[in-house]
Design a protein around this nucleic acid. Structure first.
Lengths: 202, 202
DNA sequence: GTCTATAAGTAGATAGAC
DNA sequence: GTCTATCTACTTATAGAC
């Protein structure tokens, strides 16, 4: 076990890895300790208990996602451009953090209010502004759509779902068809953009 | 507690409810017993242990999904019609079983091989045939797409994602914008169909 | 078949030596 | 700061009465 990083950080990274993979309920303090190459007791020395450790990880994850979204919505472009930027950035993010979508969706379902405040403050303002912008463009006729909420749900689904499902998908189709899953996931950037463009073309 | 159904079935239904909501790791035998209105010991009398009980539920869920998919792919129609039929049936299924998508995606990630066989035999044959059909229509030019796998991922994402995310979405946008979440979810049937039609129009 | 009581096993948390 | 050993609490599983 390499000792170059300080212990606290090693624990934190180990916890991140284990929590993202197993979730709060499935994660074991012992596994985190092993992963960090230290003793279980040290976990409690640095982070008082499992919940505090989890909260740290979870808040950091949400924070990271939020700021990414924020920066996109601050762009001064039209809806289609914003969506395409969104797609490009988030496919890359998820590519490097494949457990992220399921982890967030799950923990949110298990503890519905742990982070409702967190989310409200960070994302929702931008989200709502963007929904207004979509509505405006629909009325102007520059994009063909009916309900901004549906559009947002659709784009998020196109981006996120493949990452949540890809291990299953890989198993279903067999290695032959999916030998290049990674390439497929990256390809989705242009695939989704094209799909959206066609769907929204007036 | 109503005793009209036999105990085994009551346990089974309680277990289904709890497992789907909490997952294998998060579910508690006590909670299942309470939900079924019986004693914990009876769970072990009817189903030897937690794992066997879970397996029963899980296999049944997968089975149900599989047969649904199967019947759609057996239709003798073109790709667009099949996809639309798929959308209509599955939105209704998920509407009545909202925990299903996350449950399946999760448990599959936790026990990657428990059901690889299950899936292979039921769905994969039809899936592959359908991918071939898509490829043929792409080549004939009746639909505009590039990669059948991407198309399938996209449609599944459009259908499934909103159900996986809807509690979070509801929280983010606040009750005002989402007072009719249920209507929104059902609306997705025509929304997705329209979205696909436009995206695939040659 | 169904219950109460309890055993056995597991996981989180703490005490105390170094 | 880090470890070993241990405690406590929780969860699954079983024994045995009815």
């Amino acid at each position: 076990m390499v000792k170059d990083k300080n212990t606290e950080q090693r624990i934190y990274e180990a916890a991140r890895k284990v929590f993202l993979k197993k979730g709060m309920a499935g994660a074991r303090m012992q596994e985190i300790a092993d992963e960090a190459g230290i003793n279980k007791a040290l976990l409690h020395y640095y982070f008082r208990n499992k919940e505090k450790l989890f909260d740290g990880i979870f808040n950091e994850v949400i924070e990271r996602i939020s700021t990414g979204i924020q920066s996109i919505f601050e762009l001064e472009t039209n809806v289609l451009e914003k969506l395409k930027e969104f797609v490009n950035i988030y496919v890359d993010v998820l590519f490097e953090n494949r457990y992220l979508p399921l982890f967030v969706l799950n923990e949110m379902n298990q503890h519905p209010d742990r982070f409702s405040i967190l989310l409200k403050e960070n994302i929702v303002v931008h989200m709502k502004k963007f929904l207004v912008q979509i509505q405006e463009e629909i009325e102007k006729g520059t994009i063909r759509a009916e309900n901004p909420v549906h559009l947002l749900l659709s784009v998020l689904g196109l981006i996120i779902f493949p990452f949540a499902v890809y291990p299953l998908f890989k198993k279903m189709l067999g290695e032959e068809l999916m030998e290049n899953t990674d390439i497929l996931l990256i390809e989705r950037k242009k695939e989704i953009c094209l799909f959206i463009e066609n769907a929204l073309k007036p």
